[in-house]
Design a protein around this nucleic acid. Structure first.
Lengths: 338, 338
DNA sequence: GTGAAAGCGCTAACAT
DNA sequence: ATGTTAGCGCTTTCAC
């Protein structure tokens, strides 16, 4: 069974290659009975148009890339879901890249996107990323890029985020309402805008209640597996141990539960916990985890939708049509028993 | 800033296109000082080889596809992690496709892979998939395909699975050891091999203990969101309500917890639960969930590794070098309080 | 060690 | 409504 190409079809049907091509694309120039014949024969011979050939010719790939720190996180898993839904609708394919919080890896990945493999990019930057020229470069070269969740604030492109300041402000206030006097903040990074916003909301809440901010109670998380557990253990072993924790990264929550169990610190009696988390099982944890839940699926959809819009514009330019979606605070037992 | 191609480089350096091409590929035919010059200038001009052009010429895409039912499941998320790790090592790119348990979608996706977009495929079939000709077809056409977790048993290709029969056997015995007399099985599908194996292990365990098998206590799950909750609620509302449940799909576990809470059926006192699950938080659920945990990351790695091996063989043929990895039973409070 | 030329499979002017 | 031609950017014979 040899490869079926347009040329082959052309011979078979005594037509020219261009006629075949046009018929397959349902061009208005082609007579309907000819179309019929072509389509029929193509189906019979199981003709499949060569991806690279048309891609080379048309300079499109019908592919977008999703570049994220990791997948084993409900937020990103749900976001991918949203992205994939929109992509499948638009006939686009989705490449996944995991940076594992390595800025160098991120840079290498984006750099390669100049080769025509992808038409657009959805990016959630690493906790390490501090300079953005390689991202800007990609946009300059005509590859639309939409940032989501972990964005670079000063970049001129669409950004899909959540109301991180408010969420964090609300969560911190909630912890104080529940009686916390010393609230620790587990942060993803010192440099990420999202982290800064969450930190700012946290500080504002303290200020509004006349509390003062203690530097040493903000813990920047490590990307090294297992290291966070130790950082949390250290935090909760201090003589002036905090009585509240806000974890801004999903997976920190389980580490906190683990440490509290080991140190015999009942939640919420000794330590109250709120986590930024999209875990389906949050309500069934022991104790049920109070969460800030982001609209992950919707964010994925919004980011992808915006990207495809840019892709449809002939010039491919991205109008910065950023959106801020709202997270929801779900109060559960980890902050106050009912 | 105009597009830099090999042709452009050739002009700049007064060399032919072929020389440039060879130099960039570090061909032995090219003098080292020439190579130097080419590489230098290419870097200066930020030359990036066109993906479609080389793909068309060489008939490779350096891309694999991962086709799975969903991402929002720890098993698949972890598997993707493993796959991506191997792929990045080998310089391959990873496309993700979600079938959402639709066999038709799966078929459409695989069909398109005949176009040269991917060099190989990793597949975990839908619960609906019953005929496999379109999968076999792909392999026949020279696209290596490795099945993982949800495999088609009678297909001649590499299959990466876990010891589902034994795991299920073990879990069922464990439930009986904990005092269960009537154990329900929540199954993913009646047709999937993996489900059949888990069912078989379950039945065997019953038989070995002289219990007899009741048809109506096996519930086939629906792919409709929310429907499973109702099925479980019906199950646990029966007069002859089971006192044990084995959930073979991860997300069923939270539905069970929800239903038990609503019906005021304490776990494990009234109902004991074991779930096939890779949830990181299983140990922190209320009560801690007894799980069968699959080596998801390792399975992803194994599947990808096997695929790349096939890709390296010039003929691309897949030697069926299937592997069966072992799952682990983690006994926790949902089956017996310590 | 380097160049010329052909062609991967498709599409899009430009004819007619 | 259909055919002719050129070319996307690269690789790879084949020649020198």
């Amino acid at each position: 069974m040899e490869k079926v190409t347009i040329k082959k079809l052309a011979e078979e049907l005594n037509l020219s290659a261009s006629t075949i091509s046009r018929a397959l694309q349902d061009s208005y120039q082609i007579g309907s009975q000819t179309k019929q014949r072509v389509l029929e024969r193509a189906a019979q011979l199981n003709y499949v148009p060569n991806y690279h050939a048309s891609g080379l010719r048309k300079k499109v790939s019908k592919t977008i890339a999703v570049v994220i720190p990791e997948v084993a996180d409900s937020f990103f898993a749900q976001a991918i879901n949203g992205i994939e839904a929109v992509a499948q609708d638009s006939g686009f394919h989705v490449l996944i890249y995991l940076t594992h919080e390595s800025s160098a890896k991120e840079q290498a990945i984006l750099k390669e996107f100049q080769n025509g493999r992808v038409d657009g990019v959805l990016l959630s930057i690493t906790a390490e990323t501090t300079h953005y020229n390689y991202i800007q470069e990609l946009i300059t070269r005509g590859i639309p890029l939409v940032l989501f969740d972990r964005v670079c604030e000063d970049m001129l492109t669409t950004k899909i985020t959540t109301n991180d300041f408010e969420s964090s402000y609300l969560a911190t206030k909630h912890l104080m309402d529940c009686g916390c006097h010393s609230i620790a903040l587990l942060s993803a990074s010192n440099s990420l805008a999202i982290s800064k916003n969450r930190l700012a909301g946290y500080k504002q809440a303290l200020t509004d209640r006349g509390r003062h901010f203690k530097e040493n109670i903000v813990v920047e998380c490590s990307k090294i597996e297992g290291k966070n557990y130790l950082l949390i253990k250290e935090l909760l072993s201090r003589p002036d141990r905090p009585d509240g924790i806000m974890a801004t990264v999903e997976k920190q929550a389980t580490s906190i539960y683990q440490v509290c169990r080991e140190l015999n610190l009942p939640i919420p009696e000794k330590v109250k916990v709120v986590g930024f988390s999209n875990l389906q099982s949050a309500a069934y944890l022991n104790p049920a985890l109070t969460t800030i839940t982001q609209p992950a699926f919707a964010m994925g959809k919004a980011a992808a939708t915006s990207l495809f819009k840019a892709l449809k514009r002939t010039n491919g330019s991205i109008v910065a049509e950023s959106q801020v979606l709202s997270s929801v605070l779900h109060v559960r037992d980890s902050t106050c028993r009912l």
